[in-house]
Each structure stands twice: as structure tokens, then as C-alpha cells.
Design a protein around this nucleic acid. Structure first.
Length: 202
DNA sequence: AACATGATCAACT
DNA sequence: GTTGATCATGTTT
């Protein structure tokens, strides 16, 4: 089925209030839609990681609520954007109820609509690298710290239902680029997709 | 000092 | 193709 942007098929808040691991897994195959400079762009999420409210020392929320991570404690559906390594931004969607402190990091996407905009923001790179890796994903969608606290329940920024993959089509692994709690299997990705970020794709 | 990263380059299989 | 070292750079465990 061909993808077409349709606000009537956006995910509602209830989706993001579910358990973080469930949300991370079920975001694979959904499409993030954002209007950038008056132009709609869209990409299918192919890789995401869960960061939990409890027993997860890798989560920014593990130290409790601070100025930096406070949006992680908002209600599900809010986005948490932070700067990493002084250069890149990472985009998370907050999950579960207000006050919990959990979120899903979007790590990679497959471009669906708005190639021109993506290329403008990312430069001349191969299609499978446009939204590959959390920093590149954020850059392609023009997310910066200014967007921290926005929600994904807006006409100009939402997540659209698209492909429901079966359990067998979605891989699970350790999260990437962390040191603490690295053993937890909280990374979900579309098996075999050339748009996912890590090198062994399965 | 560490950090939920990415680009680049050298050296390898 | 892949792997590993190095660096860029701003906040914050």
C-alpha cells in the first residue's frame, strides 16, 4: 500500500500512555509526519529504543527530575529533545503517565514524503542514510532543543498509523551507544531494513 | 569527565 | 564491506 499523509489516521494520546516497551516496539512501521517551512515531510520509523522510568540506569530520568530531563516526566505524547555531544540532537517521545519519566528514542526512519526537504537539511547523502541514526533523524526533521516540550498530537506534528509488522519482522537487541544497563533488550528495529542504523542489521 | 553521535580515514578481510 | 581510532563540540551523572 502506498503511503499518503492523512491526519485522520494519527495516533491518539492513548497509544503513548501504554507501557514504554510496547510503544517502542509498536512505533516500528508508524510514520512521523511534520510540516517544515510549510511543507509536509514524513518518514516511517524503523528503529527505536525504550528508556524506562525504573530500573534503567541508562535513562536520563534515572537521577530524578532535573531541569534537563523535566519533559521526560510529562504525559505520553510530548516530545523530549536534547543535545548530545555538543553537536547532535536526539528526539524522544514521552510515554506512560505524567510524572513517570520514560520515553522512546527514535533512532532511524525510512523517508516517505518530502525528500527535497530532507536533502536540504541533511545534504547529499544516500537515501538510506538520510534519517539513519538519532542525530541524523533529528537533523532531517529539523528538530532542535527549541522543540523540546512539543507534542506529537498536533496537525503539523503527528504519528500516523501505517504498517503493522508481525513479531517475527521486528528485531530486538541491546541499546546502542550506552554504557550503563547495556544488557537490557530495549532496542527494536525493522529486521533486514537498510534504513536502520547499526551495522549487523539482524 | 562523561555523554542515548556522526564523519572521516586508515587498515584490514 | 567492515572495523577501529580520532575528533568535533555544548551541557551535564
Amino acid at each position: 500500500m502506498k503511503f499518503k499523509i492523512d491526519f485522520n489516521r494519527h495516533l491518539s494520546k492513548e497509544f503513548f500512555l501504554k507501557p514504554t516497551e510496547w510503544v517502542a516496539k509498536n512505533l516500528i512501521g508508524k510514520v512521523l509526519v511534520r510540516k517544515i517551512n510549510g511543507v509536509y515531510t514524513a518518514a516511517m520509523i524503523v528503529e527505536a529504543e525504550a528508556y524506562l522510568a525504573e530500573f534503567d540506569s541508562a535513562s536520563h530520568s534515572a537521577i530524578g527530575k532535573t531541569q534537563r530531563n523535566s519533559t521526560m516526566f510529562e504525559e505520553g505524547g510530548v516530545i523530549y529533545v536534547y543535545k548530545i555531544y555538543g553537536i547532535h540532537h536526539c528526539v524522544n517521545i514521552v510515554t506512560e503517565n505524567e510524572g513517570k519519566g520514560c520515553a522512546v528514542l527514535i533512532r532511524a526512519g525510512q523517508p516517505m514524503v518530502g525528500f527535497e526537504t530532507f536533502k536540504l537539511l541533511r545534504g547529499d547523502v544516500p537515501e538510506n542514510k538520510l534519517l539513519c541514526g538519532p542525530g541524523n533523524f533529528a537533523k532531517a526533521f529539523a528538530f532542535t532543543k527549541d522543540d523540546n516540550g512539543l507534542s506529537v498530537l498536533l496537525p503539523e506534528l503527528f504519528i500516523q498509523d501505517y504498517i503493522r509488522f508481525s513479531d517475527g519482522e521486528i528485531g530486538v537487541s541491546q541499546r546502542i551507544g550506552i554504557v550503563r544497563a547495556k544488557e537490557l533488550p530495549l532496542r527494536f528495529y525493522l529486521r533486514g531494513s537498510k534504513f536502520v542504523s547499526a551495522s549487523p542489521r539482524n
